[in-house]
């Protein structure tokens, strides 16, 4: 039973990171029906910038409690600028192009970001260790301060995002644009700006997720965004793409499924498959959802208007 709860805690931690990244996918998709392939790489950029800035600041003698938030802010700024730039340069000119076109530019961008990161940070793994050694042991279930930090911070951010979308004028403009861009434009919403802001917001969340990943795993690498992005996208689809609450539930659920799956697959299959298959779960979930319930847990968009 302890294994179960342990995996549950691990899964929730992982899941809340997925959820943050999934929000970025789902917001962009909800507003312009585009899968932003490069979003996973935004997490990587956020992670590596945070990591480097922290090292630099620590080298200057800045205490970690200050260096870490400063680095995160720096990383968020970088990611937000990058997200804005990407939308502007690569997606906006293609709004009216055939569907394949923005998908292909997105793949190209993802390659460019990864390779530039490889040039800047090298191809090896960078380590990142926070000096926190305390753990809480709750009846055999080990919880680390990093885990609680990840969970707490992501819940806070999700709540903040929901508030923003539901209560502010920017949020209202976003919802209007998602429903019907033409009408929104007629009603005086600057849809171009709304789309820009959506990318910027998603990128900021990605930067935070980046910090969480390096803090949790202790390593970062220029390819780390790929698998994470794929899983976060799965989470968004699982929850119902276009739905914010869906992305959160989808992320948490996927994290838990994956952790429990990795923990138990050996027992269930009698040792036939080991935990090295854990990455397969996300895809099986994705394919399963798309086949049996493509609108996801909380989604529900009308079909194409003919």
């Amino acid at each position: 039973m302890a294994t179960f709860f342990q995996q549950l805690v691990n899964g929730l931690t992982l899941g809340s990171i997925y959820a943050l990244v999934a929000l970025g996918y789902t917001m962009v998709y909800g507003i312009m029906e585009l899968i932003n392939f490069a979003h996973g790489d935004m997490v990587m950029v956020g992670a590596l910038v945070t990591l480097s800035l922290t090292h630099v600041l620590a080298g200057l003698g800045v205490p970690l409690a200050l260096a870490l938030p400063l680095s995160l802010l720096g990383a968020m700024a970088v990611c937000m600028a990058l997200g804005w730039l990407i939308e502007r340069v690569a997606y906006r000119p293609l709004r009216r192009a055939p569907r394949l076109a923005p998908l292909i530019t997105a793949i190209g961008l993802s390659m460019v970001i990864e390779q530039v990161a490889a040039l800047l940070w090298g191809r090896g793994y960078l380590t990142f260790s926070l000096p926190v050694s305390r753990v809480w042991n709750l009846g055999g279930v080990v919880v680390t301060p990093i885990q609680t930090g990840v969970l707490g911070l992501s819940l806070l951010l999700m709540w903040g995002l929901l508030w923003l979308v539901r209560k502010t004028s920017l949020g209202r403009a976003m919802r209007a644009t998602a429903q019907n861009p033409e009408v929104a434009r007629l009603m005086g919403v600057d849809t171009d700006q709304v789309i820009s802001m959506t990318f910027v917001l998603g990128s900021a969340l990605a930067a935070v997720a980046g910090l969480m990943v390096v803090a949790y795993y202790g390593i970062g690498n220029y390819t780390m965004g790929f698998m994470l992005g794929l899983k976060a996208f799965t989470a968004a689809v699982l929850g119902g793409i276009g739905s914010l609450a869906g992305a959160m539930w989808g992320g948490l659920l996927l994290g838990v499924v994956e952790a429990l799956g990795a923990g138990y697959i050996g027992d269930v299959t009698g040792g036939l498959f080991g935990s090295n298959y854990k990455d397969v779960f996300a895809f099986l979930v994705l394919i399963g959802v798309l086949i049996f319930h493509p609108q996801g847990l909380l989604g529900g968009r009308a079909g194409e208007k003919v």
């Binding site: 000119p93 923005p102 292909i104 793949i107 190209g108 390659m111 460019v112």
Partner: peptide, 23 residues
Amino acid sequence: VDPSNLRLLLFGMALVLMMLRRP
């Protein structure tokens, strides 16, 4: 610049530019 690195970088940029300028 590591050649294999450069290769992927160029391909990525080519994909983006192609779609924008010469689909």
